[in-house]
């Protein structure tokens, strides 16, 4: 009896002291949130600048001021001026606006086309699937910058031909991702259960398969925005995108080539940074999104 009571007391005591909890993995989490926050802040700043600056500062893109051409960065012109005396900071913001517009619209259009084609191919299966995917392979076998140039060349220079060109050359990878994802979802027992419950082909696709691939397609869309920005810059750099007087990051870099050789670095550096920094920020956001999709992280509780 006494022995039992003593054991009980001991067990009580082992429970009594305030439990000292050991925390794990704090550091990794904080670097991750730090990265996410920086990316989000930069992206937000870019979007705000692009939306607010043009209405606030009416810029005549054609105006030149040869008296103040090629001034290095100063308080009045933080990014300096270009070879006809225009403020580079303002032109960069205007350029970013065009690039971002092209990037976002093209990425959305490409994702919609890609998702529709990929999902339709996978849901139909059989011969339709094979035919569509060979078509996708055919398109992919042409270097897509070349294809883009071909499309742009059919129109007059301007923003929309560039959007069309970028969108029409970028849906292929999304179509592949979506198709593969739908095919893997289609063999899940829950699709079997839905069919057994009387669901039509359409209902299975729309209610069970498409929602399952949307996060993946969304991630592909976000990752495509920087890609589309680079594509627009490349086209403009080659002189096929926007007309030269209209600021875009590509045209800015292109027109600064001459001054770079003369040792004036700022007209090249700042537009370049305007391409790279938002790209990294958006990629950082996409990375955080991908981590959310990762099933290992999603199930925080493994029971």
């Amino acid at each position: 009896m006494a022995e039992v009571a003593e054991k009980a007391v001991k067990a009580e005591m082992s429970e009594q002291p305030a439990v000292a909890w050991r925390v794990r993995g704090v550091r990794r989490r904080s670097t991750r949130t730090w990265r996410l926050r920086t990316s989000a802040a930069i992206t937000l700043a870019v979007v705000v600048a692009v939306l607010l600056v043009p209405p606030l500062v009416q810029l005549d893109e054609q105006a030149v001021d040869l008296a103040s051409k090629l001034q290095p960065p100063s308080l009045a012109h933080p990014f300096g001026t270009d070879d006809v005396g225009r403020d580079l900071l303002l032109r960069c913001v205007y350029g970013l606006r065009v690039s971002l517009l092209v990037g976002v619209v093209a990425a959305v259009v490409a994702t919609v086309i890609g998702t529709a084609v990929g999902a339709a191919a996978a849901a139909a299966g059989g011969r339709v699937d094979r035919f569509v995917m060979r078509l996708v392979d055919l398109f992919s076998s042409v270097p897509h910058l070349l294809l883009g140039i071909f499309i742009v060349a059919m129109f007059r220079p301007g923003v929309w031909p560039v959007v069309v060109s970028v969108a029409l050359t970028h849906w292929l990878s999304t179509a592949r991702i979506v198709r593969a994802e739908v095919l893997s979802l289609r063999s899940r027992p829950y699709v079997d259960a839905a069919i057994s419950g009387g669901a039509s082909r359409w209902r299975v696709t729309v209610r069970h398969l498409l929602p399952g691939v949307l996060p993946q397609a969304g991630l592909a869309a976000v990752l495509m925005v920087p890609h589309a920005i680079w594509h627009e810059s490349a086209l403009s750099f080659l002189g096929l995108g926007l007309p030269t007087h209209q600021a875009s990051l590509g045209t800015l870099v292109q027109s600064a080539r001459g001054s770079l050789l003369a040792g004036d670095w700022w007209p090249t550096l700042f537009p370049g940074l305007f391409i790279i920094v938002p790209t990294l920020a958006i990629a950082g956001l996409a990375g955080a999104w991908r981590e959310r999709l990762n099933p290992r992280r999603r199930s925080e509780l493994m029971l």
């Binding site: 925390v23 794990r24 509780l301 493994m302 029971l303």
Partner: peptide, 17 residues
């Protein structure tokens, strides 16, 4: 979870005592 704790394979939001 007990097995994971013994192997040090708990997710980040886990605390042990």
């Amino acid at each position: 979870v007990l097995a994971s704790a013994l192997l040090g394979l708990l997710p980040e939001n886990a605390e042990t005592a």
